[in-house]
Design a protein around this nucleic acid. Structure first.
Ligand SMILES: [Mn+2]
Ligand SMILES: [Mn+2]
Ligand SMILES: [Mn+2]
Ligand SMILES: [Mn+2]
Lengths: 220, 220
DNA sequence: GGCTTTATTTTGATTAGTCAAATTCTTATC
DNA sequence: GATAAGAATTTGACTAATCAAAATAAAGCC
């Protein structure tokens, strides 16, 4: 069995490689896991010797097929648990991430399958993050963000990446949840500022950096 | 935060001291936790230095008030999780113990309170084990077992101690779950054998040792 | 191309939890 | 009350995960 530390490293490498098989740097990996870079190096070497990653010394790390399988399993557990906490236990979508971070390592396949059935085999979690199937298939669709989409067009929010409580609470306060309808009223690149218009008529201002965390599709 | 190892030790000391404040021997504790006796000694010393147990060198260990508080919290989580797995996810009461053994260390108070409410604040888990309240109160009622109760009287099974899959499956196969009605048809102490009669008329034979794991009360 | 800055790796220590085997204490038995 | 058996403790060693700080390699810059 992979320890929860190993599971966290593999999941994080998957998330940082952004779907494709890009190399993940030790610096980024260490920062994401809140450890010192030397710790990440040591751990990655041990993952490599277990055949879970390829370590390109001094250049970065990439999942092997075996490592990717494990990582997708962890991601599936994480996202189904988040969905359960919101849909069944009625918890707030801004607070479930931390809970799932622990539970993802403690739940068995038997329990997970029942949760999945109870929830009706959802395709995405409360943040809009796609849920891998039991076979490890994951929706890789690429979306525009509020920082890159066309201006003025009616949009639908499909996903909020960035799991920090502060950011999610900001999103919730301003009605920027998956499914909400908005359009970009103005994008001032010099000031790094974006102004949204909601269907309610309300406007919301946010930075380019923040806007990059909100994925959108044309409203149909 | 107590590690899950610490939580397991404290919970096990509580279970082995059987409610009262009896000293628990290192041998019993080590066996219950599947570690070597020296390991239990080392761990108990560290628990003692954290003020969670009193270690009477060479005689045994007992929980302090602080240790008991932690242990009751773990027990509450364990039993509420088992109840959830059976009542909501419809899992088998013979297989939920192992699941709860891991989940009990990963679930937060916020999630637990919501589970408790969803289940209607149950007083006992699927095995009939009493669930401590949020304040650490636990039903300490003493029951007779099928090995000690009076013969011929109509009885109701209130609890099945002993969590091993084999034993629980034996109980399930023979309809010996909490709530079931039986009476002791015959108790042969020389042979160490007990014969039960169910309301259906069916008879079940079991050893004195097995009978000691089934707690009963007079059927009202 | 050589020098400087930055990222990565290495080295040496530390903590939690564990086991095997030697040692010491307790208790039962004669 | 001495002794043998059994239980508990101690000692030394090991694994997983981590950090601080020194060493090294890679990139960027003039
Ligand atoms: Mn995690
Ligand atoms: Mn999510
Ligand atoms: Mn446990
Ligand atoms: Mn139980």
């Amino acid at each position: 069995m992979a320890t929860s530390t190993v599971e966290n490293y593999l999941k994080q490498i998957l998330l940082l490689s952004a779907g494709d098989d890009a190399l993940v740097s030790m610096g980024d990996l260490a920062a994401a896991l809140a450890v010192v870079p030397g710790t990440a190096t040591t751990m990655v070497k041990s993952l490599a010797s277990d055949g879970l990653v390829d370590h390109h010394l001094r250049h970065g790390v990439r999942l092997t097929a075996a490592g990717r399988r494990v990582a997708l399993g962890v991601l599936r557990r994480h996202r189904l648990i988040e969905t359960f906490l919101v849909e069944v236990l009625k918890m707030d979508w801004t607070e479930v991430h931390a809970e799932a971070e622990l539970l993802e390592h403690a739940i068995s396949d038997a329990v997970l399958d029942r949760l999945d059935a109870l929830l009706g085999h959802p395709a995405a979690d409360p943040h809009g993050d796609p849920i891998p199937t039991r076979l490890g298939k994951i929706d890789a669709q690429v979306y525009a963000t509020l920082a890159t989409c066309v201006v003025a067009q009616p949009l639908r929010i499909v996903r909020v990446t960035e799991q920090s409580g502060e950011f999610l609470q900001f999103a919730e306060r301003n009605g920027l949840r998956p499914g909400a309808r908005v359009r970009v009223a103005e994008r001032d690149l010099a000031a790094g500022l974006i102004t949204l218009k909601k269907t309610s008529g309300r406007t919301v201002a946010l930075s380019l950096a923040a806007a990059g965390n909100i994925l959108v599709a044309p409203a149909r």
